[in-house]
Amino acid sequence: MWIRMLTAMLAATLLLIALLSANPEYRLFMPGLLEGAVLTVEITLLGAVLAVFMALIAALAKLYGPLPIRWLSTTYIEIFRGTSALVQLFWLYFVLPQFGIFLDAFLVAVLALGLNIGAYGAEVVRGAIVSVARGQWEASIALNMSKAQMLRRIILPQAFTAMIPPWGNLFIELVKSTSLVSLITLADLTFKAQQMNQSTLKTVPVFTLVLLIYLAISLTVTIAMRLLEQRTSRGLTRGRVA
């Protein structure tokens, strides 16, 4: 039901983009914007990989690490959740070079956004792990599993299902925050839009198209996550006895 409505919205968005592109006023901008969209998608994908990786590490460290590791991971989570993504981006971009560390803008973008979303993701992962029923841990102990075996085989697979909806929201936040990279000179969708707006002053076509393209990307992510959710929850609720 919800997936259908989202799919309809996505179809409508794509149709609208196609219709608008038939108009030369709009078509003019499409090639440049699509180029920017490719960069936006690249940063989103790499950022998502980093975010998931960091979230898992930080959550497990905060839950099960020795004290210093726990502090370290709490500090990471609090700092990256407590300051804004743009501040983090600027800090890595402007301040690191003053310490003699020169990173490519693309790398800074992926790092900043991945670390930022990863910090929120860590709390999602942690929440999902602690919400797995206590009996599952106890049954694993009774079967004499090691802590690592319990986590890998019993707890994380169950937590995974609970994590999908909040991760869906985080990935949307990630898509949206990629627009910030335009402020550190990366030619993403937002950067291209700004550039075209300044050079042609055709504000309405440019920003309408950009909004629609972002909408299409976000809706695709949302639909993909909903489908994933349906697939994984099937094992847990398959033909539940009435």
């Binding site: 919205m9 949307i172 898509v175 949206k176 925050s177 990629t178 627009s179 910030l180 335009s182 937002t190 839009a193 700004q194 707006n197 504000t203 309405v204 920003f207 950009v210 909004l211 972002y214 909408l215 976000s218 809706l219 949302t222």
Partner: peptide
């Protein structure tokens, strides 16, 4: 619902630009 979904699915930065540059038109 659609309006809310629209606003939440697109970057705030673009929305800021939109109001700043498009409204004067």
């Amino acid at each position: 619902t659609v309006l809310v979904e629209l606003i939440r699915s697109t970057p705030l930065l673009i929305q800021i630009f939109f109001l700043y540059f498009v409204l004067p038109k």
